[in-house]
Design a protein around this nucleic acid. Structure first.
Length: 272
DNA sequence: ACGAGGTCCTGCGAGC
DNA sequence: TGCTCGCAGGACCTCG
């Protein structure tokens, strides 16, 4: 599922093919992906708009035009590409926008848990302001992470995945960072000791950077901007490995649904 | 402030 | 083989 590294990967792929281009006609297959915007105003806003910037914020892709910003939150199965031909039927294309000088921006989302927003400048400021800090921002420090964790008694993994607390981290990378840092995912966030916070900060940044370098993790149907599989799934140590041996100590990995109803795999011996 | 549970949506794997 | 069923996921909501 697209988390920070996966969204960063397809944003990097589409950015050079979008900036400076003008949107021609747009097609939307389903209205249920829209949040706070009607089909009519989205399509009218896109038509004729010129792209001035494309970037990632948290797990969102933001496509900025002078008229408004198209925010794509890919949810679990969403992906963004620029391609030469329109998507065929059965490719789950939700939004397709024709570009001047040829090509199409295609947002695919088989399960449509993703959402599309169309925001003006103040709307974007309010939206991004409600999200937590970027973990790969140079200003994001261990003490910054520490103050986020200190503010909650909820499970540390749940806090890491809360987009209003920390941006971009989802189920895969939260589990991997907690494993690498040797921290029990169910531990109350504010009980993580300072040394643990420093390890967690270091490991989270390391893992996110490595995942971007590997163009993300293809667990199911995520693909890079060029349609290739990511390579970071081969580096995953705990995600989807319940019952398999811990790579550090050989103990069989545990799995639980007890943290926010999401599957969490961890080593009860290495993570305390 | 927290956990629990429901909602959206559909592909897929499990089970019969 | 062919069906039904329940799960999976992120974000958001309500309730206790």
């Amino acid at each position: 599922m697209p988390e920070l590294p996966e969204v960063e990967t397809f944003v990097r792929a589409v950015r050079p093919r979008l900036v400076g281009r003008r949107f021609l006609s747009a097609r939307l297959s389903h209205d249920d992906v829209l949040r706070g915007v009607t089909r009519r105003s989205l399509l009218a806003g896109l038509r004729g708009a010129r792209v001035v910037d494309v970037f990632r914020r948290a797990k969102h892709a933001a496509i900025v035009t002078a008229r408004g910003t198209l925010v794509i939150q890919p949810g679990m199965t969403g992906s963004l590409t620029v391609r030469g031909r329109p998507a065929a039927a059965g490719e789950y294309a939700v939004l397709q926008v024709r570009l001047d000088r040829g090509g199409q921006l295609v947002y695919r989302d088989p399960r449509r848990l993703g959402t599309l927003l169309w925001l003006d400048a103040p709307g974007w400021e309010a939206y991004t302001g409600g999200l937590g800090p970027e973990p790969l921002d140079p200003g994001f420090s261990a003490s910054g992470l520490g103050s986020i964790l200190a503010g909650s008694r909820a499970a540390v993994k749940k806090v890491m995945m809360d987009q209003h607390a920390l941006a971009g981290v989802g189920n895969i990378y939260a589990q991997e960072a907690l494993f690498a840092a040797g921290i029990d995912p169910s531990k109350p966030a504010r009980d993580v000791a300072p040394a643990g916070v420093r390890r967690l900060h270091r490991q989270l940044v390391r893992i996110l950077r490595a995942a971007i370098a590997a163009e993300g993790s293809t667990v199911r149907d995520y693909r890079t901007g060029s349609g290739a599989r990511g390579r970071f799934q081969f580096e995953l140590k705990v995600y989807d490995r319940e019952g398999e041996p811990c790579v550090l100590c050989g103990t069989l990995l545990s799995g639980t649904h007890a943290i926010d109803g999401r599957i969490t795999v961890f080593c009860h011996r290495c993570q305390t």
